[in-house]
Design a protein around this nucleic acid. Structure first.
Length: 857
RNA sequence: GCCCCUGUGGCGGAAUUGGUAGACGCGCUGGAUUCAAAAUCCAGUUCUUUCGGGAGUGUCCGUUCGAGUCGGACCAGGGGCACCA
């Protein structure tokens, strides 16, 4: 037998799997279905290590479940709409469709070379009109059901390019191309009313529907939805009403601190502020200044706290005669609550920072335990903990919880406010002013208003001849595309030129896979059989947005009869990211890792020796160029070694920092297994796989015990996503097989048969080749998973560590079924134990059966 | 800033969830094989030591017979923050 050559072996088996349609899946109500799905990739051009890791994990599960007798659905498609293709069109002049489909062709080839057990017959891209026509149909259904809304919201506006920018395109508050300071601008946009379902999206997190999800993801979603109960109340404006406002409605989750109120703060986007700014140039300047912060919560929160005092004052609702100043503050978000707050600086850090800056009063009203009300003061830090109310009239002496209840009741009784539930979650804005997305099927008519495109006119296809020479939305400036006629009155009308957020595309693709050629958006019969996805796998970076939108979308689809369930993903596994250091040239451009090297401790560009700044270790992303291509590994060592390697070292949920070392080890393993198999040609000839497990032979107890222990361990490791541990076990098993010289042929056959079937999910090509050489029946891809016999797992003796005062001093090898007294006697007779307890009194004798002995002296 | 996560030898990591810290792999050292090399195989590898032992899981403090694991405070790194996907 020659050396193992993946270059010929891997394509050979891929061809055989394809010809025999081993991974093609059909609806079969007789068999239990198992739907495994990895988050589908954006076709960026080449697969990267994150993909290899993600799809290798999914493939292990898919092949394992198939071996366990499930009808496995393991599809693949492309999240194909999005900004990068449109940017490429602007920079290189190529059409987004061409760029996208070219990239898909390359990446499909690369994925196929990995030997994944995917049913390629179900493949689609979200930019296929055959896919997005159904997205438009779904939208019409949602529109009819009242799930869709049109309202104003803020976007990043580049005043030079006259275009809307994505958050990613805003760098230090400036447009990425123009360099102009970006403004926050209001625009009418389409929304899905996700807040209407906030209650159920939240409830499902804790009522068992998401029990198969990781706790941290559930917690993140819970915090994101952000249900909170508080008080909405009015602070009357002193004197005459201003511009029709007689009071300011504020929302607070800490009404217990009402007597510590120091001032009232308004968002720069608050309607009252807008009316005042019309006649107050200084205020208008301040508001404009605030709007330069951009739209992200992060930017607003991190910006230096700034305020502008208004000329109006409000009255404290419970303290007659007390007036509070009113400020516009840049950190107050219009989207949350009422866009106005009352501030209690003593018990809120942001309010405290603001109060210190503008010299506003600080009145503590919650006294921490063990503090004296006469001497208690607030220094650097606001006190946000629990305690006893003081300085608060009728609330004095109450706990925070009691005070919250009492004050809400009190305000409600006075009729100046009410207890209210608010949500952090905002409606989902789906409008994008871009070309490369699914057109929103809406028609604007001057007489009839806004109308949905009639279902029979779908799809609304993207025009192909578009102009990318300038920034802005090509659909908007296309000479003819937006011209249409009103479906109601027949007069000239305009198409909606916004396209969908790409999160819409990825919110239902999993349902489409269960019937990819259906005339309706979904094939109900197949959807009911396959869904929910039994195992969903993807990056932790999608923990909130994608997963929350998909959960909401599924509810909307259910309401329209397209699916029969609320929660699309039964079990979720979030893998860690593949990270790598970033490198920046002296001119501030990102560099690929292969462009730089370390010379005497200094990072330089290989081409010209120019100095390079090594930046943070971040998730691999094309925009920062800190990517390592898996091609080199696959070309040198083959797909199996690459798959084995990405799963072998790190626990799957953890981030991995990529290093080159270690691939060699995977390559060695491939060869080692091949050599072992090649040394036992025909070992499995004529043996029925199912029968091997019951064979017995003399003198090979140890080998059989190891074989069955390994089967048990590897099976549970795979079920629990502990691929690194499964692999470690296989390494140990290899060592045992090699040393089992005296084992009989049947025991050896059992070991080899189990070994090859256990490595098959990890290194499928190698497994097929070995299976063939050993004389296994059929394809290992179709072979059942090895089973183990519980009776063969146990060993005759166990090793019990002995501790004296919690420190290990000796070991005891005993039979596991000795009783307590016998163990105690054996322990005390041990030499090392005697030396350590000599002359001391035994105060406690702890025996944890099968675990440990601890003697306290 | 807010929410979530992570931290163990030279490196990636393991530890049955409170019970022998360092499985397995990488790297390194020594040996075998070879004309030589590659490949392969075998052995060793937390630090320290007067060879009895002592120290040790980011830092400090606590709970316990016993802490990598539980609690508190802190430090460092990563992810998300609604138009990157």
């Amino acid at each position: 037998m020659g050396r193992y050559n993946p270059k010929t072996t891997e394509p050979k088996w891929q061809k055989i799997w394809a010809e025999k349609q081993v991974f093609k899946t059909d609806f079969d109500p007789e068999k239990p279905g198992f739907y495994i799905l990895e988050m589908f990739p954006y076709p960026s051009g080449k697969i990267h290590l994150g993909h290899v890791r993600n799809y290798s994990m999914g493939d292990v599960i898919a092949r394992y479940k198939k071996a366990k007798g499930f009808n496995v659905l393991h599809p693949m498609g492309w999240d194909a709409f999005g900004m990068p293709a449109e940017n490429a069109a602007m920079q290189l002049g190529s059409h987004p469709a061409k760029v996208t489909y070219d990239n898909i062709a390359v990446m499909r080839e690369q994925l196929q070379q990995m030997g994944l057990s995917i049913d390629w017959s179900r493949e689609f891209a979200t930019c296929d009109p055959d896919y997005y026509v159904h997205e438009q149909r779904l939208f019409l259904d949602f529109y009819a059901k009242g799930f869709v809304d049109r309202k104003k919201s803020y976007v990043n506006w580049d005043p030079v390019d006259n275009t809307v920018l994505a958050n990613e395109q805003v760098i230090d508050g400036k447009g990425w191309r123009s360099g102009a300071p970006v403004e926050r601008r209001e625009l009418s946009q389409w929304f899905f009313k996700i807040t209407d379902m906030a209650e159920d999206l939240l409830a499902a997190i804790d009522d068992g529907r998401l029990d198969g999800w990781p706790d941290n993801v559930r917690l993140m979603q819970k915090n994101w939805i952000g249900k909170s109960y508080g008080l909405k109340m009015t602070f009357p404006i002193s004197g005459e009403p201003i511009n029709g406002f007689s009071g300011i409605d504020v929302f607070t989750t800490r009404p217990d601190t009402l007597f510590g109120a120091s001032f009232v703060g308004l968002s720069p986007d608050h309607p009252l502020v807008e009316t005042l700014a019309a006649t107050d140039p200084a205020l208008a300047d301040f508001v404009e200044e605030c709007r330069k912060t951009g739209t992200t919560e992060e930017a607003i929160e991190r910006a230096e706290k700034k305020g502008h005092r208004l000329s109006i004052e409000v009255e404290h609702p419970l303290i007659p005669g007390k007036k509070l100043s009113v400020w516009v503050a840049n950190f107050i978000l219009m989207q949350y609550g009422t866009g106005a707050v009352f501030a209690c600086p003593a018990h809120d850090q942001r309010d405290l920072d603001f109060a210190r800056k503008y010299d506003l009063p600080i009145i503590p009203v919650v006294l921490p335990p063990q503090e004296d009300p006469k001497t208690y003061t607030i220094d650097e830090d606001a006190y946000t903990g629990t305690g006893t109310l003081f300085n608060s009239e009728f609330l004095d002496g109450l706990s925070v919880d009691e005070a919250l209840k009492k004050i809400i009741k009190h305000i409600e009784n006075k009729g100046i406010g009410e207890g209210t539930t608010t949500w952090r979650l905002r409606d989902w804005g789906v409008s994008r002013q871009r070309y490369w997305g699914c057109p929103i099927p809406i028609i604007h008519c001057k007489t009839c208003g806004t109308l949905p495109v009639p279902a029979e006119s779908l799809p609304v296809k993207l025009p192909e001849n578009v102009d990318f020479s300038k920034p802005g939305n090509p659909l908007e400036r296309h000479p003819t595309w937006k011209n249409t006629i009103c479906p109601k009155c027949g007069k000239d009308a305009k198409r909606e030129t916004d396209t969908f957020d790409t999160f819409v595309d990825s919110s239902w693709y999993f349902a489409r896979f269960a019937g990819p050629s259906s005339d309706a958006p979904t094939n109900r019969k197949e959807v009911d059989y396959w869904l929910p996805v039994d195992q969903y796998i993807g990056g932790i970076e999608h923990a909130i947005l994608h997963l929350l939108y998909a959960r909401y979308f599924t509810r909307m689809m259910k309401a329209c009869g397209h699916v029969g369930l609320d929660e699309p993903f039964k079990n979720l596994f979030t893998q860690g990211m593949v990270t790598h250091a970033t490198y920046k040239s002296a001119t501030g451009e990102w560099l690929f890792p292969e462009q730089v090297e370390n010379r005497n401790g200094q990072w330089v560009e290989i081409d010209n020796g120019a100095p390079v700044t090594k930046g943070a270790i971040e998730k691999m992303s094309k925009s920062k160029k800190n990517v390592v291509s898996p091609e080199v590994i696959a070309e040198t060592y083959g797909a199996d070694a690459a798959r084995w390697f990405v799963l072998s070292d790190s626990p799957p949920e953890r981030d991995v920092e990529w290093t080159d070392s270690g691939v060699e080890g995977a390559w060695r393993l491939v060869n080692r297994i091949w050599d072992m198999a090649a040394g036992h040609t025909g070992l499995l000839d004529g043996l029925d796989v199912g029968q091997i497990d019951t064979l017995t032979g003399p003198g090979d107890k140890n080998l059989r015990r190891t074989t069955h222990q390994t089967i048990e361990g590897v099976s549970s490791d795979i079920e629990n996503f502990r691929f690194n541990k499964a692999i470690a076990r296989i390494y140990e098993f290899l060592g045992h097989i090699k040393k089992a010289d005296e084992a009989s042929k049947p025991a050896l056959a059992e070991a080899y048969s189990a070994l090859i079937r256990m490595i098959a999910p990890f290194t499928p090509h190698l497994a097929e080749e070995c299976w063939q050489v050993l004389g296994g029946e059929g394809l290992v891809a179709n072979a059942p998973w090895p089973s183990y016999n519980k009776d063969l797992l146990g060993s005759e003796t166990i090793i019990l560590p002995i501790q004296i005062n919690g420190k290990k001093r000796a070991e005891l090898e005993i039979s596991p079924n000795l009783n307590r007294e016998e163990v105690e006697a054996l322990a005390l007779s041990n030499n090392s134990v005697q030396r350590h307890i000599e002359g001391k009194e035994i105060r406690k004798f702890i025996i944890v059966p099968g675990r440990i002995i601890n003697i306290v002296v």
